[in-house]
C-alpha cells in the first residue's frame, strides 16, 4: 500500500517518492516539495490539520488534503 504524507506521525521523517503535480500547487514544489527530498512532521494543529512540516530545510504548513497527494517512504519512527 502506498503511504502518503497525511499518514506521517509527529516527529517522524520520510523521503518523498512521488508528488501528483496536478494536485500540488507549483509554489509548494518550488519550496522544495520534490521527489527525493526529506520531510519531517514537526507539529500538527488541533484536529490534526494543517500539518507543520520541515521539507528539505524549509519550514512550512500545508493542509492534510494536500498532503494526501504526496507519496512518501517513512525512514524512521
Amino acid at each position: 500500500m502506498q503511504v502518503t504524507l497525511a499518514q506521517l506521525k509527529r516527529g517522524q521523517s520520510a523521503i518523498i517518492t512521488d508528488v501528483s503535480s496536478i494536485h500540488i500547487p507549483l509554489k509548494l514544489l518550488e519550496m522544495g516539495c520534490l521527489p527525493g527530498n526529506m520531510v519531517e512532521l514537526v507539529q500538527v494543529a488541533p484536529f490534526s490539520d494543517p500539518l507543520y512540516l520541515n521539507i528539505n530545510g524549509s519550514h512550512l504548513a500545508i493542509r492534510k488534503e494536500t498532503a494526501t497527494h504526496i507519496l512518501i517512504e517513512i525512514t524512521n519512527g
Partner: peptide, 10 residues
C-alpha cells in the same frame, strides 16, 4: 480548490 501553503519562518 483549497490550496494552502504558509511558510513558518524562524
Amino acid at each position: 480548490r483549497s490550496f494552502f501553503v504558509v511558510e513558518m519562518p524562524n
